[in-house]
Simulated assay, not measured.
Amino acid sequence: MRDVAAQDWHAAVLAAREDGYGWFDWLGCVDEIGVADELRVVLSLRRLDDASAPELLLQCRVPRSEPRVDSVRDVFAGAAWHEREAAEEFGLEVVGGDRRRLLLDASVEAPLRKDEVLAARTAGPWPGAKEPGESTEGGASPSRRRTVPPGVPAPEVWGDRDPDGPDPDPAEIAAASTGGRVRRRSR
């Protein structure tokens, strides 16, 4: 994995292509919340002239508050779709990239950021929380605590909390992305 400064992103990808890495494989984005306050953009390139050459991974880190990186679609045309996906799913601004939406309505902001609450999962019962033998009529066994699905923070963090209280901590919301936590009964 080769680290690249965000301002050198385009030049580094161009240099890699000139070094023989002429096959664009994929470009993705990772939300590093809980580890760092940034997004990590990763690009995978391969050599076609040397099958034994390892995959080249380039990565740059951009602040979550201003996630901006230059487009590389002029270097690898196939990167355009991947850049659009990262922009739509993570809120990454790709300077010089195609700004059209791929999948989601414009009202949806950045659903793959870990601090984005998946409200649809809180609206109804989560089917993954049921165990064999549990019915919808009888509910869960009174001795069993219910688990919550991934992407749904505890009510104290988001949801059933004091509306006059402080905003939830993004790191606490991000911790909810693993799911399976036990939902405590409020008394």
Rank of each mutant, 00 (worst) to 15 (best):
M1T: 10
R2E: 04
D3M: 11
V4F: 04
A5E: 11
A6S: 03
Q7T: 12
Q7H: 14
H10C: 03
H10R: 15
A11N: 06
A12N: 00
V13Q: 02
V13T: 05
L14F: 06
W23P: 05
F24T: 00
D25S: 15
L27Q: 02
V30F: 04
V30N: 04
A36E: 15
L39P: 01
L39K: 08
R40D: 11
R47L: 04
L48S: 09
A51M: 06
S52L: 07
S52V: 09
P54Q: 02
E55A: 13
L56P: 12
L56K: 13
R61Q: 09
S65P: 05
P67G: 11
P67D: 07
R68A: 10
S71P: 00
R73F: 10
R73E: 13
D74T: 15
D74C: 11
V75N: 06
F76H: 05
F76I: 03
A79W: 03
W81Q: 02
W81F: 14
E83Q: 02
A86P: 00
F90S: 00
F90V: 01
G91F: 05
L92V: 00
V94W: 00
G97A: 06
D98Y: 03
R100W: 10
R100S: 14
R101K: 10
R101F: 13
D105I: 07
L112Y: 02
R113Q: 01
R113Y: 02
D115T: 11
D115E: 15
E116S: 14
V117A: 02
R121S: 08
A123H: 02
W126M: 04
G133K: 05
G133Y: 04
S135R: 12
S135C: 07
E137W: 15
A140W: 09
A140M: 07
S143C: 09
S143P: 03
R144I: 01
R144H: 07
R144K: 05
R145A: 15
R146C: 13
R146P: 12
P149Q: 10
P150R: 10
G151Q: 08
G151A: 14
G151R: 11
P153T: 09
P155D: 15
V157Y: 06
G159Q: 08
G159S: 09
D160W: 00
D160A: 05
P166N: 05
D167M: 12
D167C: 12
D167T: 13
P168R: 03
D169V: 12
P170N: 08
P170G: 08
A171S: 08
A171V: 15
E172Q: 14
S177K: 09
S177I: 02
T178A: 13
G179F: 14
G180F: 12
R181Q: 07
V182T: 11
R184A: 02
R185G: 01
